Amino acid sequence: MIGIDSIRIKTKGVVSTNTRNKMAEQQKVTTHRNPDESVYNTYKYRLGGPGDNRMPLLLYTQESGKIELSIPSLPYFIQGSCLTPIREADVPLFYQKISERLAEELDYAVEETIDNWIVPKMDIYHDFHVGNDVRNYLRALKEVSVPTYKTWNINNETVYWRNGSRDIKFYDKHVECIEARKTAMEIEQSEGVLRFEVQLKTSDIQSGVKDGAVTLGTLMSEEVTNNLLNKYLSKIDMNNLLITTEEEMRTTLAERYDSKRAHDIVSFIKAKQSGYGEVISRSTEHRYMTDLRRVGLAPVIAEKQLPPLAIAI
């Protein structure tokens, strides 16, 4: 699947007076003033009408020729559900659908093909189907600390790590669908789903592209999005690592190393989860984390053993 959730794409061009008038009929034109007292006008238009805020929003700044299209949920726009995965075979349909909607509703024919629009921001995601263990995973994940990130836990329904404007998070998708009053189909599809989601900035997106500009066409592939997802799953030391109880962790480590080393590593994990991890040196922490990865264990003690979270490449 292509793991893109929300995305913003942009280009430059000229929008006709007729199209601008249609945009102004739906939403009020916003006038902004620059520090030098010059003004610019922003036109907005929600495809399908203003009633569904999950549909794409088109923005046009007349003075600069800047055109932006914000798509709150790519799966919802293409498939009608935020839980139905996008496949590479769906990409041509998406390009066709977005172009047709712009033409039908606004008489706007894109000058630059959609796949060549630049991507300054997007959120990527992966849905783990874990059944009744969603809360067990979240209780375990809230104990994970990531260097330079601050950890937040919201009612054992959402756990996220924040660094500036970048968020890495896991959450109970079923709860989110119910609270957001999403469709009956989406609520049913979301049962037992643990969603992993990362908010990316331009520099983050660029790291997933080998050469050239970050265009929509270069990002609409399973390989690109899965590589980015695995990068951030590894950042929180959860990529394909078994989550275990204290006893299971101690036994596994003792079998691979020795009982003293097992005791030291388990004590280190317990100290981190109790908030006292800072008394351990950085080099010691690195060594313990490496030891855990070598035996395939996540750096967290849980109430029960939980299968690894893995995303196929």
Score class of each variant (00 low, 15 high):
171 Y>K: 10
171 Y>L: 07
172 D>G: 02
172 D>S: 12
173 K>H: 06
173 K>V: 03
173 K>G: 09
174 H>D: 06
176 E>D: 14
176 E>R: 01
176 E>K: 02
177 C>I: 00
179 E>Q: 13
180 A>G: 02
181 R>A: 03
181 R>Y: 14
182 K>Y: 05
183 T>N: 08
184 A>H: 00
184 A>L: 06
185 M>G: 01
186 E>C: 14
186 E>N: 02
187 I>Q: 15
188 E>C: 01
189 Q>H: 10
191 E>K: 15
192 G>I: 07
192 G>C: 08
192 G>T: 10
193 V>H: 07
193 V>T: 14
193 V>N: 09
195 R>H: 05
195 R>D: 07
196 F>C: 08
196 F>A: 06
197 E>H: 08
197 E>S: 06
198 V>N: 02
198 V>P: 06
199 Q>W: 04
201 K>D: 13
201 K>R: 14
201 K>V: 10
202 T>W: 09
202 T>A: 12
202 T>N: 11
202 T>E: 14
203 S>N: 15
203 S>F: 12
204 D>I: 06
204 D>P: 04
207 S>R: 14
208 G>H: 01
208 G>P: 04
208 G>E: 07
210 K>P: 00
211 D>S: 11
212 G>C: 08
213 A>G: 02
213 A>E: 14
213 A>L: 07
213 A>K: 13
214 V>L: 04
214 V>Y: 00
215 T>M: 01
215 T>K: 05
216 L>V: 12
216 L>N: 03
216 L>Q: 05
216 L>D: 05
217 G>A: 08
217 G>W: 09
218 T>I: 04
218 T>P: 00
218 T>A: 13
220 M>H: 01
221 S>G: 06
221 S>N: 02
223 E>K: 15
223 E>Y: 15
224 V>R: 11
224 V>M: 06
225 T>Q: 01
225 T>L: 05
225 T>E: 02
225 T>M: 05
226 N>M: 04
226 N>R: 13
